[in-house]
Write a protein that binds this DNA or RNA. Structure first.
Length: 368
DNA sequence: AATCCGTGGCC
DNA sequence: TGGCCAAGGAT
């Protein structure tokens, strides 16, 4: 065992801790839709949805997703547009592209059975160390650490770990600790219980230590420093980007939409035509008209703006001004540039800001 | 190692 | 109101 891990675990009452933690989980765990059974496919989908995403947000998506794609094969065979549409609004869209590719891989290479070995499962797209441990322990009872933000917070307090959890190497330290204290008989409940404790009791601010089932094991509580842990140094620096967009219709009332690039921000989602505004140049309206002519070969006539909105990402802010517009020229439709009827808009997956654009547009009328 | 990649809720 | 936060992974 790693020397550093050994120092943290020394003198820790592993058996008692496991009992206190798991018996609490058996009594207090929430009734969640992905806890009905241990179907590896369902566990996997839930874990991908839960990456950086709250339980309350995931629940309705999970229900809908399982109705549409009840089995791994159903998802593997599903149309890409429908899969993306089922993810609309969940964020981090590369997750679903990777999951779809990974599920196809499982169907082809493993006969549709989710592999139960670390070396195989962890190689699948979108599957990192956390997801590997979570799926293999919960679905197959394999004693692998599943170290997420909850677990790092809980363990940093219990073992008084002052290492910065925003550093890449710190997760490995916690994996080492978990390997020493995990319940080999019930790794599923052990891992879930650590996360559940982090979600219900050992929360970031004002943890409910007086209700904590493992209070007696917690070194931070013993020293009264639980509020100072975990240590996170990194601060978010967001930049702002002005965007000019337009809802453009032709004389038949069809709406111009564009599919974003397959990589990067909001990959493969649809959007209303837009571009970044460059300062010290023509006005935004003219910039977008030029952009659409040069990039899409479409001549449009933009009129007045009807909405201004903000789209806040984790690392970026779009300040969007939206214009009414009409198509002047002919248009060559492609895979990524389409004219669609208004009632077809709902079949395409848009980022939230563009959903709002459409909502505003319908509310204020198609005037121009 | 440092950045990029969504969204909504909270205090 | 705005910064922080949430069951991470890819590059």
């Amino acid at each position: 065992m790693n020397e550093k891990v050994k120092r943290f675990v020394e003198g820790f009452l592993i058996d008692t801790f496991q009992r206190d933690l798991i018996s609490w989980f058996e009594k207090e765990q929430r009734d969640l839709p992905w806890r009905k059974d241990t179907d590896p496919y369902k566990i996997w989908v839930s874990e991908v949805m839960l990456q950086q995403t709250r339980v309350e947000t995931v629940i309705p998506y999970f229900h809908h997703f399982m109705e549409q794609f009840p089995t791994l094969e159903a998802l593997a065979d599903a149309d890409e547009e429908k899969v993306l549409k089922a993810w609309e609004g969940l964020g981090y869209y590369s997750r679903i592209r990777n999951l779809h590719a990974a599920v196809k891989e499982v169907k082809e290479r493993y006969g549709g059975k989710v592999p139960n070995r670390v070396e195989e499962f962890s190689k699948l797209k979108g599957v990192g160390p956390y997801t590997t441990g979570a799926v293999l322990s919960i679905a197959y009872g394999i004693p692998e650490p599943a170290v997420d933000g909850n677990v790092m917070r809980v363990l940093s307090r219990i073992f008084l770990v002052w290492d910065d959890i925003t550093k890449a190497g710190t997760r490995k330290l916690f994996e080492g600790i978990v390997r020493e204290i995990i319940d080999e008989e019930n790794p599923s409940y052990f891992n879930q219980a650590l996360m559940e404790l982090g979600a219900l009791i050992c929360i970031p601010r004002n943890p409910a230590c007086l209700l904590c089932p493992v209070q007696a094991h917690c070194r931070a509580f013993h020293e009264g420093v639980q509020g100072e842990l975990p240590v996170k140094t990194k601060k978010t620096n967001v930049r702002e980007m002005p965007i000019v967009a337009a809802v453009v219709q032709n004389e038949c009332g069809k709406v111009l939409i564009h599919k974003r690039d397959s990589e990067g921000l909001l990959a493969n989602l649809w959007e209303f035509p837009n571009c970044e505004v460059v300062h010290s140049r023509e006005n935004p309206k003219t910039q977008l008209e030029i952009f659409l002519k040069e990039e899409y070969g479409v001549t449009v006539q933009l009129e007045q703006p009807f909405a201004a909105l903000e789209h806040v990402f984790s690392h970026l802010i779009w300040n969007i001004v939206v214009y009414y517009g009409k198509i002047v020229s002919d248009i060559v439709e492609t895979e990524r540039l389409k004219l669609v009827d208004e009632h077809e808009i709902s079949e395409y997956a848009f980022p939230v800001s563009h959903q709002r654009i459409w909502h505003e547009y319908k509310e204020k009328g198609t005037g121009g």
